[in-house]
Write a protein that binds this DNA or RNA. Structure first.
Lengths: 148, 148
DNA sequence: TTAAACTACTTGCAAAATGCAAGTGAATTT
DNA sequence: AAATTCACTTGCATTTTGCAAGTAGTTTAA
């Protein structure tokens, strides 16, 4: 079992890293059109059900969502929790590793502000906070997300 | 010609944005496994030829490289320059819009430092600078990249 | 001066990823 | 007890990727 499972790990995991560059490694994890949106939703909401993700404006399809949640969980960026009141619901939330992505999302928002129009209201509000005190905003938000 | 080209623009450009969220918009532009590596190379080198990109450790395939360069140029993240001494070479460099991605790359590097091992030497050197004075590093690097 | 080598790409094709619609089975509500 | 909700899965067509080989202009070496 030990041997079999580690063999399986070796054979099945596509962890033939292209390089040790952290940009490259990061892209292999969340370098697609959807992963960071899942992470964004969790930054805003702290906890989401599967259905919450499906409700997001960008309309991820359900099979892609399931696949992304699985790899993000495997890579320990998010974790599953049991729902306090319902057995049929599942809660997802960010781990420390996931929460630490916040500064990246903040910088993407700042870049987006410069080069895109018609930002959503919640982004405008967020950016207003960020520009008053970036470090403070990040600390505050990380504390809010912190695992209890 | 006016009508035809704008019609073509309307029909061919896949600019049906999923949403106005800057995260989502950014991902539609460089949310793949390769674009940010091209941008990274240009942040380090200021100017690269087509062949320079192909030489990078991650070994992008030539058709993907051509496709990414084209869309990054269309989106005005990079621009083409003629090579000072050779007619057969082409130089690529970042525009202001591209240079402004630097803070995002810096944060990805900082995140990567926490969660990956065996970082390349140049990343370690970069991070050492960044951690002494993040704003200073970004200003310095942006100035270095600035279009002459 | 001409052939070989180098440049920035393009093309063809197989394999993988994506996106849509329709299921499935367990838990919950009516 | 039936209908609805929940978190997924499955099947399949379309799109994107990745590999290998090719091409046309440019530069180099004989």
């Amino acid at each position: 079992m030990h041997f079999a499972s580690s063999l399986k790990f070796i054979l099945m995991s596509k962890d033939k890293k292209r390089s040790n560059c952290p940009i490259s490694c990061s892209l292999e994890l969340w370098g697609d059109k959807w992963s960071l949106l899942i992470i964004r939703d969790l930054m805003f909401a702290k906890q989401c059900t599967y259905g919450d993700f499906l409700k997001s404006e960008e309309k991820i399809s359900t099979n892609i969502l399931a696949a992304r949640l699985k790899t993000l969980e495997q890579q320990m960026v998010i974790e599953k929790l049991e729902h306090p009141t319902s057995k049929s619901k599942v809660l997802y939330q960010l781990t420390k590793k996931g929460i630490d992505i916040l500064p990246i999302l903040v910088e993407i928002n700042l870049w987006g502000e410069k080069y895109y129009d018609d930002l959503p209201d919640r982004t405008i509000a967020l950016l207003s906070d960020v520009k008053k005190d970036k470090k403070g905003f990040i600390n505050k938000t990380m504390k809010k997300l912190d695992i209890d």
